[in-house]
């Protein structure tokens, strides 16, 4: 694998994580529990989709085959998507959405803080932009973890169930392959193992303060680095790509 191929693949991973989570959050539009949350979740969806546009545009540039960010979003089959399994999981109840966001935003905060120092200027620039937004996302998710965990018996129960259900998707966030190896050597990305201890520490603090329990299960799901996904991604792609598949190059 060349450096260029590795960078392309890495940009797809970053871009797909933003795109798919952005799509998931946008599903809350008009049906969040309260109007403030309708605004919050869709605002965050917008940040994430905006970030994916920037990253996929760069991915297309690195690939050098004349594709655009739209080609990459709307014409790629499911097996060529490299987002983490966590972000494609269905919204579930509000607790599931918050726990998914909390795990992911804590991870993104640590990752993008490192990417700001990347030797790749474009990625460093996007990271500097996006870290400001991630701070808001993380604060939002953390506030809700505390309120749900330390709220009513019902919200506590649901938050704990969501933690337990989402837990098996957390190890994969830190999984690395040849792409990471090549880019770490180039100073473009960071060794994800180095983020893990800090991630665990941060989420443990919030979970304990929320009066919830950190799951102990060691069974973990994996697959997305090879493009193998849970059943849910296919449905997202089908909905997202329908128009461009049915009417190629349609514009409006």
């Amino acid at each position: 694998m060349t450096k260029q191929e590795a960078l392309f693949s890495y940009c797809l991973r970053l871009g797909d994580n933003s795109l798919i989570l952005g799509h998931r959050l946008s599903e809350w539009s008009s049906k969040a529990p309260i109007i403030e949350e309708d605004l919050a979740l869709t605002n965050m969806a917008l940040d994430l989709i905006g970030r994916s546009v920037a990253i996929l545009k760069y991915a297309a540039e690195v690939e050098g085959k004349g594709h655009t960010e739209d080609d990459l979003a709307y014409r790629r089959p499911e097996r060529k998507f490299y987002n983490n399994l966590l972000v494609e999981q269905p919204n579930g109840d509000f607790a599931v959405t918050i726990v998914r966001q909390f795990f992911n935003s804590t991870f993104e905060y640590l990752l993008y803080e490192e990417l700001m120092k990347s030797k790749d200027e474009t990625l460093a620039g996007i990271a500097a932009k996006t870290i400001k937004e991630i701070k808001y996302h993380l604060r939002h998710a953390t506030d809700w973890m505390l309120r749900l965990g330390d709220g009513t018996p019902e919200s506590h129960l649901r938050a704990q169930k969501a933690l337990n259900d989402m837990w098996m998707f957390t190890d994969e966030l830190f999984e690395m392959n040849e792409v990471d190896e090549i880019l770490i050597k180039e100073g473009i990305t960071v060794d994800l193992n180095m983020l893990k201890a800090n991630w665990s520490k941060k989420i443990n603090e919030v979970i304990l303060e929320s009066t919830l329990t950190v799951p102990t299960s060691t069974f973990m799901q994996t697959g997305s680095r090879q493009g193998i996904h849970s059943e849910y991604l296919g449905y997202i792609i089908a909905e997202m790509q329908y128009l461009q598949r049915a009417y190629p190059n349609a514009k409006w």
Binding site: E36, L39, A40, N43, M44, L46, Y136, H140
Partner: peptide
């Protein structure tokens, strides 16, 4: 503060 997220991404309510 009513909501950290407002009518557009750049505003709170």
């Amino acid at each position: 503060m009513i909501s950290q997220f407002g009518s557009t991404a750049c505003k709170s309510l």
